[in-house]
């Protein structure tokens, strides 16, 4: 672990039991996150992409210990936080914050925006009413909605403004790492770019590190320094953003990239659609998770667990067929 790393995750696993019947007999496991490794560098952004149900949000929750991981290590600034109790986690909560997808569901409708943001400050132990009020004003200014709005209620704001409030709340405790769980997916195009710019500006200004979780490869490609592609609880490919988009190797990454319609009518390629649906993570078959939809599948893919192969120092891929 280098000095530049803020968070390192190794072999992270979370299985959810599935029980059925009167005696709640265990009938299997949903392997939501099944051995995930990655590193987030200080002041940088790691993009975590994948389709719905691939375990990307669960990964975010595990890092914050909002869910208890089953296995693996999470090293936050030289400290393994996996075994920490909720009490021991408390001081670390100031360091790691989360921004949610739905800015409507994540703000308390009965609290003014000021009160919502102040809540975090109180937990941080900022004493003095006036101090907290100034902090709130500063935060609102920082996210671009003006301090005068502190006494308004969430319903008085538009979606984009609410997302800004969500960001102000996360920033209130001066975190170093922010987990952004689909922060722009619910927003309109013109608002989306405002929020992306804001996140970028804040990162430059405050030296924040982001784990940016999204299903949108174009947004991830724009904002991230490193990208991890996830499928059914496994990381399929992991590389710096430029490398991943210029030299994608895994058949799943290729499929994702070619499925995005480009905003250029002259570039009308037939969208190469993957056959089939995203399979359920319930009792996945042995071998490669992608075997059911993969165009390159062979017997070996169905028989053995496929490991992550190194393409070069920074680029790894979970497919034995594409490595030279």
């Amino acid at each position: 672990m280098t000095n530049n790393t803020i968070l390192k995750v190794e072999g992270l696993k979370k299985y959810f039991p599935v029980r059925r019947g009167f005696f709640q007999k265990l009938i299997g496991w949903i392997k939501a996150v099944d051995g995930v490794d990655f590193e987030i560098y200080k002041g940088k952004t790691l993009g975590l992409v994948g389709e719905s149900g691939c375990g990307k949000s669960t990964t975010g929750m595990l890092i914050l210990k909002l869910l208890e991981p089953d296995e693996g290590t999470i090293i936050y600034q030289d400290q393994d936080i996996i075994g920490l109790s909720q009490d021991e986690m408390k001081p670390l909560r100031k360091e790691m914050q989360i921004i949610f997808q739905d800015p409507f569901g994540s703000l308390n409708p009965r609290m003014t925006v000021g009160q919502s943001i102040e809540e975090g400050l109180r937990a941080l132990g900022v004493k003095g009413h006036v101090d907290r009020k100034t902090r709130v004003s500063n935060l609102l200014e920082m996210v671009g909605i003006g301090p005068s709005t502190a006494d308004f209620y969430p319903h008085e704001f538009s979606g984009g403004q609410r997302q800004r409030i969500g960001i102000a709340r996360a920033l209130s405790v001066k975190p170093s790492l922010i987990i952004c769980d689909e922060p722009v997916s619910a927003l309109d195009v013109s608002i989306q770019s405002q929020i992306i710019n804001l996140l970028k500006e804040l990162q430059a200004q405050l030296g924040l590190s982001y784990l940016f979780i999204s299903h949108d490869l174009t947004v991830v490609g724009y904002i991230s320094d490193t990208v991890a592609v996830m499928y059914l609880g496994h990381i399929m490919e992991y590389a710096p953003a430029d490398e991943l988009y210029d030299n994608p190797l895994h058949p799943y990454t290729l499929a994702l990239l070619s499925a995005i319609p480009t905003p250029d009518p002259d570039d009308r390629h037939e969208l190469k659609a993957l056959a089939g649906d995203v399979p359920s993570p319930f009792n996945p078959p042995p071998g490669c998770r992608f075997q059911g939809r993969c165009p390159l599948v062979e017997a070996r893919c169905r028989e053995e667990e496929i490991e992550l192969y190194k393409v070069n120092e920074e680029h790894t891929v979970r497919c034995w067929k594409v490595i030279r």
Partner: peptide, 24 residues
């Protein structure tokens, strides 16, 4: 014009995205 230029793409990495100020 605003809608088109505010689309993120990898080619625009490192530069600020154009955005339409205000809300609908």
């Amino acid at each position: 014009q605003g809608l088109l230029t505010s689309l993120p793409s990898r080619a625009k990495r490192g530069s600020k995205l154009h955005s339409i100020p205000g809300t609908v």
